[in-house]
Simulated scan of single mutants.
Amino acid sequence: MQKSFLVVVIAAFIGAFGIHQFAPAFSASIAFFAGAIIAALLFMFLSASSAKSQADYQGPMMTLYVGNLPYRVHEGEVKELFEQYGAVSTVRLVRDRKTGRRKGFGFVEMAESGAREALAKLNDFNFQERTIKVREAKTQDNGDSDNS
Rank of each mutant, 00 (worst) to 15 (best):
Q128K: 15
A111G: 12
K103T: 06
V88A: 05
A118E: 01
T139A: 12
A137N: 04
G59N: 09
A87R: 12
S113P: 07
L46H: 08
F26V: 08
P70L: 11
L46S: 07
D96L: 03
R135G: 01
T99V: 03
K3C: 06
S89V: 10
F32A: 14
M1W: 03
D146F: 13
A40T: 09
A115F: 07
F17R: 07
S89L: 14
G114C: 03
A118L: 03
G86F: 00
N142E: 11
I132G: 04
L122W: 00
Q2D: 11
P60K: 14
K98I: 10
S4V: 06
N68W: 05
D141E: 12
A28L: 15
E77I: 02
E75W: 11
G100D: 00
I30Y: 09
S50G: 04
Q128G: 01
V78W: 03
T139Y: 09
K79P: 00
E77F: 01
Q140H: 10
I10A: 13
E75V: 07
R72E: 14
A36M: 01
K103E: 10
R130A: 13
E83Y: 00
A51S: 14
F22K: 00
R116L: 13
V9E: 00
A40W: 00
F45C: 07
E77M: 04
E109Q: 15
F22N: 05
A16N: 04
Q84R: 15
D144A: 13
